[in-house]
Amino acid sequence: MTSDLAGKTALVTGATAGIGKAVSLALAARGATVIVHGRDAARGAQVVQEIEAAGGTARFIAADMSDKDDVRRLAAEAGDVDILVNNAGVYRFGGTTDTDDALFDLHIDTNFRAPFILVQELAPAMAARGGGAIVNVSTFGAAVAGKGGGIYGASKAALELMTLVWADEFGPDGVRVNAVAAGPTYTPGTAPAADMVEALGRAFALERVAQPEEIAATVSFLAGPESSFVNGSVLQAHGGIKAVVPRV
């Protein structure tokens, strides 16, 4: 345990597994009080217990990120937060003709509208208090076309654009807004497609898949005081792009 985030409250969405859980543990280890968000109360309680067992402080709030009213309730119940990590997201793969209205809405509502509402509800109070940090978890797929990943990547690309807008809107009042474009990562959500995830990992320069803790360390950096002059950045955490090999 360290204490450089002592006295700070962090809301981490999608925090009951994978990257979100790792982020929650990392921020709690630095002294922040963590609001663990998720849909499953039992899994949320486990994360809270894990944080408390390590000497940290946490509580759980359930909310459906695809429901705009529930997202606003989450913001209200969270109260004043100093760090917001917009991590919750969905990814369903398919081509354009395979994407019906319900699937389209699920991605836009969860991956884009929910973070928009949370920033809308929470950032002004951060600004009024003189500062805060917002980190949006994005994906390399926001900038690289992927087979079947169009609507997922597009929803995250929108989030990255708003990262730049929010950095301008709230930066003058001390609220820094950044994003992490994560590469292929081992999580419970990616486990059913392990072979595809492994193949994606080999497509990057490090030729491997990330662990959740590696992405969490990047998020933690952007949330903490050591990144005090970083604002409006989309930090690439995908292992590096391989050089193009020309055919001769």
Rank of each mutant, 00 (worst) to 15 (best):
L5M: 07
D69G: 15
N178Y: 03
A102G: 12
L118N: 04
G146C: 10
V180D: 14
N178V: 01
T97R: 10
Q46K: 15
E121M: 06
L164M: 13
R72S: 14
A10V: 05
A205Q: 08
T57Y: 00
P225H: 09
I151V: 14
P212G: 03
N111T: 01
T16L: 05
G150K: 05
A53S: 14
A10L: 00
P246W: 10
A133S: 15
F104V: 06
A158D: 09
R176E: 10
P225G: 11
H107W: 08
T13M: 02
A29Y: 06
A154L: 14
T190V: 01
A223I: 00
D109C: 00
T163R: 02
A191H: 11
P172A: 02
A127N: 04
F93L: 14
M126R: 01
T2N: 10
T33L: 12
G132Q: 06
T110R: 04
L118H: 00
F112Y: 11
T13F: 02
V48W: 11
A143M: 11
A26T: 01
G153Q: 09
L25H: 13
A157S: 10
G38A: 05
V90W: 10
R208S: 01
A216T: 05
G94H: 07
A26Y: 08
V177E: 10
T139E: 07
K242T: 09
A182V: 02
A125T: 12
V47M: 05
E77H: 10
G14L: 06
L27F: 05
D195T: 07
L122T: 08
T218G: 14
G224S: 07
A182Q: 09
Y152L: 04
E160C: 00
R43N: 10
V119A: 03
N86F: 01
Y91V: 09
S24Y: 05
L235F: 02
S155I: 07
A6N: 15
D40K: 04
V209Y: 10
D195W: 00
G131H: 07
I241V: 14
A41S: 12
F221W: 11
K147N: 11
D80P: 12
V175D: 03
V135Q: 07
T96K: 06
G232H: 00
T13I: 00
A75T: 02
I215S: 06
G239F: 05
T96V: 12
L11M: 06
L222P: 12
A75C: 04
A237W: 05
F170W: 11
V209R: 10
